[in-house]
Simulated scan of single mutants.
Amino acid sequence: MSRLGKYLIFLGKLFTNREKFRVYFALVFDEAVQIGIGSLLIVAIVSFFLGAVTCVQTAANLDNPFVPHYIISLIVRDSTILEFAPTITGIVLAGKVGSNIAGELGTMRITEQIDALEVMGINSTSYLVLPKIVAAILVFPMLVTLAAFLSIWGGYLAGWMTGAISPQEYIQGIQFEFKAFNVPFALIKAVVFAFLIVSISAYQGYFTSGGALEVGKASTAAVTNSCIAVLIADYLLAQLLITT
Rank of each mutant, 00 (worst) to 15 (best):
I101P: 01
G106I: 14
E83Q: 06
N61W: 00
M108C: 06
I91C: 09
I91T: 12
T107I: 06
E104R: 12
I88Q: 14
S99G: 04
L62D: 07
T80Q: 04
P65G: 05
G106N: 12
G95N: 03
S99L: 02
I81E: 11
V67T: 15
A85L: 02
T58A: 07
F84W: 10
P65M: 00
A102G: 11
C55H: 01
V92A: 06
T89F: 11
L93S: 07
Q57R: 06
E112L: 08
G106M: 07
V76Q: 05
G95F: 07
G95S: 06
V92L: 15
L74H: 08
A102E: 12
T58P: 03
E104F: 04
Q113I: 11
I71V: 15
S79P: 08
A85F: 00
I114T: 14
N64C: 05
I101C: 04
D63W: 10
N100V: 05
T80H: 10
I72R: 00
M108P: 09
P86D: 01
Y70H: 10
N64E: 14
L74S: 03
K96F: 11
T80N: 13
P86Q: 00
K96R: 15
G95Q: 12
L74E: 08
A59K: 08
D63G: 04
S79L: 08
E83C: 02
T89W: 10
R109G: 13
L105M: 01
L93K: 13
I101V: 13
V76R: 08
I110W: 01
Q57L: 11
S73F: 07
P68H: 03
I75S: 13
I114P: 04
G98T: 09
T54F: 12
F84C: 12
Q57I: 03
E112P: 14
T80C: 09
Y70M: 04
I101R: 01
R77E: 02
K96Y: 09
I114G: 12
P68E: 11
L105N: 09
M108T: 11
T87I: 15
R109S: 10
V67A: 13
L74Q: 14
T111Y: 03
L74I: 10
E83R: 05
E112Q: 14
G106C: 13
N100R: 15
I88K: 15
D78C: 01
A59N: 05
G103F: 01
F84T: 14
E112R: 14
M108F: 07
T111V: 10
A94M: 06
T80M: 11
A102R: 00
S99H: 03
Q57C: 00
I72P: 00
K96W: 11
G90Q: 13
P68W: 03
